[in-house]
Design a protein around this nucleic acid. Sequence first.
DNA 1: TTATTAATGTGTCCGAAGTACATATTACTT
DNA 2: AAGTAATATGTACTTCGGACACATTAATAA
Lengths: 242, 242
Amino acid sequence: MQKLRLKSAEIEKSTHLEFFKIALSVDCVIFGYDKKKLKVLVFESDFEEYANMLSLIGDLVQPEEDLEEAPYRILRERAGLHDVYMEQVYTFGSVSRHPSGRVITTAYFSLVDIKTHKLPASETNLHWHDVDDISQMAFDHKIILDTCLTRLREKILEYPIVFNLLPEKFSLRELQDLYEAILGVELDRRNFRKRITLKNWLVDLNEMEEDVPHRPGKLYKLKKQLKSNGKPLRLKEQNLVI
Amino acid sequence: MQKLRLKSAEIEKSTHLEFFKIALSVDCVIFGYDKKKLKVLVFESDFEEYANMLSLIGDLVQPEEDLEEAPYRILRERAGLHDVYMEQVYTFGSVSRHPSGRVITTAYFSLVDIKTHKLPASETNLHWHDVDDISQMAFDHKIILDTCLTRLREKILEYPIVFNLLPEKFSLRELQDLYEAILGVELDRRNFRKRITLKNWLVDLNEMEEDVPHRPGKLYKLKKQLKSNGKPLRLKEQNLVI
DNA sequence: TTATTAATGTGTCCGAAGTACATATTACTT
DNA sequence: AAGTAATATGTACTTCGGACACATTAATAA
């Protein structure tokens, strides 16, 4: 690390020794979707105080690593995930939140298509867990999860991000099931289709579902300009990318 | 600091010495409003690299201090401000963002009524600066300011928080001027009044403006349940506090 | 005292978008 | 060939936001 010159009014009152004792970590809330259920990628904590409790995937930020890079690295290293949608949500910093000492954590959520992104066999501990079947977690991870879920629910109403949870091609029924799973409500089919049509997010592929046990529906995909590879989208109006 | 036990998979790969070298700071974007202009509280940086450039008020988070507590302390110590509306916005952590070393910062914005909260005479350097008259700042503070301003603009459309920038009693005209200053647009007076009425945020005080050089308008105040002393509001619908 | 001025206060029309709800069509199943 | 369960589409009602007009009030100027 480079030598410190502490001349700012912000820092001059302190010595490094006293202040550079805080660790910064990143915790990743990785959402997936399968069988009409919203999932989150978790593992059973090997931390003494929280043995066998569910834990989010996280790691310390490296000394020479940008904060925004850390969650992407963690997803690569721990879950073999590349090019996923990622968004910073909130930073949690209670003194007592981590039993090992002062660890402040920044929470990110990401959206992953479970079918396309297979988990690495090496990480046998990792698994996709129903979001609405989690009542407690290690550390303050339940609060982190809830905060990210709230943010997700707000965001999907205005921004076309849920498509990161689906395969390239999908039917309107699948899309509606996904919205219902995330929002936890039932939606009227006809009105849902109208709203989605109005947002003008989709392209009709002129293909039909196959191997479904009922009348097949049309398949759609997200418009190319609206695809979010990694970075969160910023939209003006409902279909214009800034 | 308590002794560390580093047994978690999150931490075990590292030694403290290597990782507890990151400093965490808080930067406060303190918004005010005066003479139809949105203001922000700044001072001229005494930091060598950024001499005479505008800087936000910030400080390092103390080793035994909750992250959420730090911005309140900073407002007290540096600006004599108590009980102000405060909201966490984003955490900035580029490796190179601070010339003194690895300093990650969490940005908060707060809303203050300039007339009620006078600045302490000791802080001669502090002053209220027009937000739209700032083109560059020290460090990455301009980006931090812009991020907070964007969040503020989104938030005021749905949540009754701008009232923290006004005195207890105000006219609809003053309220509209404030919205226009924050959003940077002109609004139709009649439609604005209709929208505000619809939101049902206000109480008609049956009092009139005084000492205005024109026909006085009615005075209103924010409904008591909607007052936000410090913590950000969470609303369901448009006027219900959860 | 009166007319002027500049603001406040209120209302209407219209179109966009959301909600409730009904019917026809299609393909698989029996 | 009939029954079933899903898709596909449409209509009426309501709510909300945006464009816009007119009457009212109080300070000011003649």
